[in-house]
Design a protein around this nucleic acid. Sequence first.
DNA 1: CGTAGCTTTGATGTAGGTCAAGAAATGTGG
DNA 2: CCACATTTCTTGACCTACATCAAAGCTACG
Lengths: 241, 241
Amino acid sequence: MLDSPFARKLKAFVTLSDSDLNVVSTLDKRKRHFAPGRDMFHAGQTDASAFILATGWACGYILLTDGTRQITAIKVPGDFLGLRSILFRTSDHNVEPITPVEASEVRINDLFGAFAGTPRLAIAFLWAASRDEAILVEHLVGLGRRSAAQRVGHFLLELAARLKLVGLGDKTGYDCPMSQYLLADTLGLSAVHVNRVLRELREAGYATFQLGRVTFQDLPGLFAFCDFNANYLDHDGPLLK
Amino acid sequence: MLDSPFARKLKAFVTLSDSDLNVVSTLDKRKRHFAPGRDMFHAGQTDASAFILATGWACGYILLTDGTRQITAIKVPGDFLGLRSILFRTSDHNVEPITPVEASEVRINDLFGAFAGTPRLAIAFLWAASRDEAILVEHLVGLGRRSAAQRVGHFLLELAARLKLVGLGDKTGYDCPMSQYLLADTLGLSAVHVNRVLRELREAGYATFQLGRVTFQDLPGLFAFCDFNANYLDHDGPLLK
DNA sequence: CGTAGCTTTGATGTAGGTCAAGAAATGTGG
DNA sequence: CCACATTTCTTGACCTACATCAAAGCTACG
């Protein structure tokens, strides 16, 4: 509704009027539920929908012919998911729930209906898509040029910032339902190495990831260690008043 | 104009009317020229413009504090560049020309002016942005899960497909102004290793990259070797008639 | 025609992968 | 609330793909 994580996120970028917010809540109509273990949509599908994630986590991924996979995006509440799937003839990726998921189904016409009347919302939406792209770019940089330890730390910090924007977690840490296997497929590492790196971060006194919870012991230290700069998340408060 | 590489590309997705195309050519007004060696815009800049590349190649990149860099996108004629720079408060990346570049400057208001009157164009534009994201995703997958040789081969094949869409290159190959250093920063490798991999691809009879030209000797073989599937470029002819 | 930037190659080092196996945690049915 | 199965985590030993360092041969162009 008016205070969905998605609306909350958009408001970080543009100030939205009540009528704008009403249009947002229109998009939030067709609620769907998904359980882990079954894809929300898959690569090759031609009639895929997009979704706005309300609760739970999901991940987008691509499977290679040699059986390995690369997770291309981790989605948390408030995130939009599957834009490419509705714009392309066939989806180029898969999305699966990490936890039980509650999400609103969005079809292409919903989207353009919403844009037609409320240009301000179109701006906000394009911003959200660009922010997702910025996150993708930062992952790319990590895979290309950061060490495994920096990559893991950077990712944990990014999640903290993204969750905070939608009101989840706090300064001390956050609940994270990802297994080390998921972390590995996200960060282009082996699960074994993720485990070693996590121990390294723990022993260095930076952060702990255990029993489904990320806890920060030394945030400034971790920031410095990972060369983390949150600018790419563009969270500095409403730009368009 | 009516047959700019950008218009040509959009037409691969939607059938555009003459009046749609006129609006596109409106965006193509403010022609600018850039020479290699100086950024078109840089990270941290607050008043950056976006551009539609008419001729020449450019690259977007991010600099890390340890002095390494990661190229996040290679832009060829017809590509749009700098969307995040105009939507974000400050640009999160740099763009520099690889060759002399001719490009049309686009400001945020041009964009929304164009969208307001011609929704079909907005769809086409959103498609172009999503296609750029798909390219990004595929690079991410390469960095995370493909071997250096597959990564290089995949990249050469992708460029061939992208150039073909805007009428550059042919079945035998294409002109490529990238140095092995640029290739290395794009693919997350060292320049030395890029050189070795290029030799490997040459000796395997797949492709040659020498003197600024990529030449394919065994396209089917290279497709198979790299696990290349062009679906993510979404080139199957106009979807929206 | 000189010099700066590319390309090529060899020798050596290392981050992170793979394999293997045991210990914790978590889930399931009774 | 327990017994058992399954998944996840953890650690050690070993290996390989790619990095780094170094140096020589090209190319181009001012």
